[in-house]
Design a protein around this nucleic acid. Sequence first.
DNA 1: GCGCCAGTTGATAATGATTGTCAAGAGCAT
DNA 2: ATGCTCTTGACAATCATTATCAACTGGCGC
Lengths: 137, 137
Amino acid sequence: MTVRPVAQALRDAGLRPTRQRLSVLQSLRDRPDAVTAQDLHAELRGAGASIGLTTVYRTLTALADAGLLDVFTRDSEQAFRRCGTVHHHHLVCETCNKVEELSAAEVEDWVHHAADRHGFEVTGHRADIFGICSECR
Amino acid sequence: MTVRPVAQALRDAGLRPTRQRLSVLQSLRDRPDAVTAQDLHAELRGAGASIGLTTVYRTLTALADAGLLDVFTRDSEQAFRRCGTVHHHHLVCETCNKVEELSAAEVEDWVHHAADRHGFEVTGHRADIFGICSECR
DNA sequence: GCGCCAGTTGATAATGATTGTCAAGAGCAT
DNA sequence: ATGCTCTTGACAATCATTATCAACTGGCGC
């Protein structure tokens, strides 16, 4: 009952539901924090899974392109996290990397007004908040 | 009359105003777009300046730490741009990399309200808009 | 003016995340 | 089952960035 929807999500993204992709998506599914390709690879290997580093990179990138994952830049590497498909912003804990999704009409309004004032045609925007969550304090 | 204030800015940041640092800060001063260390190094060399790549990296990082430059992540490398010292947001042209600074009380309000609602202690935030400027359209 | 020395520089090597390669392996429609 | 295309993964290659370390220099005290 948990494998089915994951496999479907992959199909919807035009990706074959292979054993490796399922294990990546599966471990991302129940995780509140963002993780790097390197770390996820080590974790999966540690848990006994057989998957190559290259595949982890490819899978994460493909899932992000399909809009199933958000990408963050942490230090000089990128971290991924499962995310909803509608537009949203983030509240990130700098200690445990937990990420909460936020929606915000206020931000959207600001984006368009500010861009209009400067004669820009909006192609995208990003608004994230960083902090320490209640558990980490 | 343009060298003096630049040198002073360096002193204020606790950095000796050396020939190399002056040339970096100087070329950043009259530039509306964000530039990477690699590109800036090539440019300075091309203009006849004598400066090492390592020094360009160190100088840009030091100036960013001192709050004189903003850092952007473009593809997988970081680009720098001179900036004001008060908190602000950005409007970035994805074609020519021109950057305009914005201030926005709306965003600050949203940040604190959203963080409070989730029990986070705010340590920082970032809100940038991407688009195409009027000249590039 | 001069020497001193902590702060700087820069050629080069090292690092480390990410991507390219390509032969072997695995879904899935027929 | 068979074939064909999509995937995989060990390994090599990239490439931005950082570490090294000996040579250099700004500027303060004399």
